[in-house]
Simulated scan of single mutants.
Amino acid sequence: MTGTTDDTTVMRVIADLAPIWFPGCVVDSAERTVEVGWGRGALQMSAVVGLREIIERCDQVPQQRWAEQIEAWLRAVVAEGELATEEHRYGDVGERQRALLVQRGWSARTAGPVADTLIPFGDHFEVVVFVRTGSELRRLTVVRRSMLGLGEPEVPSPVQLSLDEIADLRPVDHDGISVLHREDDPLVSMAIVDREEILTQASVGLGVLVGVPRLSTVAFCPADAGQALADRLAQYVADSYRGAPDQCSPDLFWVQGDRMVQVPVTLANPPQAVLPPSLLPTPRRTWLRHLLLQLFRR
C-alpha cells in the first residue's frame, strides 16, 4: 500500500493523533515533519524530526494498525531526544562513535520503533553505528544521529574510529589458520572492512577464506590452501560460533579484493567446505601461492 494518496492519509492521521498523545507537539504536513519536546522542569528541549520513516512503516501495514505504529514511533523519538541530551554529558559524541560488522538483517530483526544508523556491506553483512558511553555501546538511530548533528562533514567517521582501535591486532596461528581475536571486543569483526591494512592477504593471489563467527573473532586462511585447511577453518568457525555470547555469522566466505562470495559448508560432522573449482589446488598454483606468500612476508 504505497503512493501519494495513501501518504497523505497517513499524514492526516499523524496530524490528528500526535497532539493528543503529546500536547504541544507540532506537525507540519507540508514539510512532513513533527516537532517534539522533552525535558524536566525548567530544562526543556525540542527537535524537528522528519516523518518519512513512520510514513513508510504505515504504508507497509493495514490502516487499522497505523495508530499504534505512530504512537510507538513518536514515543521512541521522544526517548531518543532524552538519550541525546544525556549523551552530551559524556563528552564529544562524534569521537565516541563506533561501528560494528554484523550479519545482514541483524538490525531489522532487533531494532525498535526507530531505525538504526547502518551501512550495507555486501550481500551478507551490514555495519551498524553505535555510541560508546563508558563501557556501554548504545545503538545510534537515524533520529538521534540527526539530533546530535553527527551527519556533518567535519564529524569523524565511525568506521575509521573503529578501525583505529583494532589497528594493532596481529593474527595468531591456530593449527594453520590465522585468527584475529580480542576478548570482549566487538570491534574485531570490522577487520573484514579494512582489507588494505588488517586483512592484507585478501588482496594477495586468490585472496582468503574467512569466517566471522564472533564479533570478537575473525579467522582466515589462503583461499587456495587446499581442502584440508579449508575444512579446519570451517570447523573452527562452527566451534567458535556455537554458544558464543557475541555470535556474528556461522558461514564461510571467499574474499578476493572487493569481492566476497559465500562458500557452502556441509552439515556433516566435521563440517566440510564446498570449494569452487577455481580454488582447488594445482601444482602450478601451489608454487605460485608459495612465491606470493614469500614476497608478502618480506
Rank of each mutant, 00 (worst) to 15 (best):
S29K: 12
R242D: 09
V36M: 08
R138H: 10
L291F: 10
T286I: 05
G211W: 04
V159T: 08
G134P: 01
Q44R: 14
L83P: 06
A202N: 07
L275C: 06
L148P: 06
Q227Y: 04
V255Y: 02
L148A: 03
T85E: 15
R284M: 00
G41L: 00
A191K: 01
C248W: 04
W38E: 14
H124W: 13
D231L: 00
V255H: 04
S216C: 04
R182G: 01
I119H: 12
A244I: 05
G243F: 09
D116L: 05
I55V: 15
V274S: 00
R284K: 06
R232E: 02
P158R: 03
A111G: 02
T282F: 11
F22K: 11
Q256I: 05
L43V: 11
H88N: 13
A268L: 14
Q63H: 09
L161N: 12
V128E: 06
S249N: 14
L295N: 07
I177Q: 03
V77D: 11
A115N: 03
L150Y: 05
A42N: 14
E136A: 10
A230H: 12
T282D: 11
W106H: 14
R96E: 03
D16F: 06
P250R: 06
R297T: 13
P270A: 01
V265I: 08
D184M: 12
V204F: 06
A223S: 08
Q160V: 08
H181T: 07
L233R: 06
D164L: 02
D173Y: 08
G81C: 03
D59M: 13
Q103S: 05
A273P: 09
R75A: 15
L83E: 15
L118M: 14
R242C: 11
A76R: 03
M45F: 11
A30W: 00
V237F: 03
V77I: 15
I119M: 09
A30K: 09
R104C: 10
P156S: 05
R132I: 04
L17E: 11
V36E: 01
S29E: 15
V208Q: 03
R285G: 14
R195Q: 14
I177D: 05
P23C: 07
Q235L: 14
W21V: 08
A111C: 08
S146A: 13
V128W: 05
C248S: 03
S107G: 14
V218R: 01
Q262F: 03
D184W: 06
A230R: 09
A15S: 12
A191P: 02
L206P: 00
G94L: 13
